[in-house]
Amino acid sequence: MNHNLFPGFIGLSAALFAIGAVGVLVRRNPIVVFMCIELMLNAGNLALIAFGRFTHTMDGQVFALIVITVAASEVVVGLALITGVFRSGRGLDVDELSEMRE
């Protein structure tokens, strides 16, 4: 493995994380917002695995595995929340779901 590729991996990870963050901030559909959060978690995983690979340790992969677990449980709870909100009769728009703010 060419070490010159390391900045490529970290730069790609940063780009994917930034795209996901923009999606979270810009989109209004909560399902798409969740998918963008998945995008950010995946970008973090890529950085973890790249650092682990280039420092020759297994720690990055172990942490990536735990991040995948956290992401899976987050999706389960988040989608249950979305179905609950949808069943309560309010539309799927995060700009309109602002009762907790007021």
């Binding site: 390391f6 970290i10 730069g11 930034a18 963050a21 923009v22």
Partner: peptide
Amino acid sequence: GGLAAVAFTVVVARLT
């Protein structure tokens, strides 16, 4: 948002 994303990527790539 797009400008912030590009700026973030450039900063991280530069640091790397």
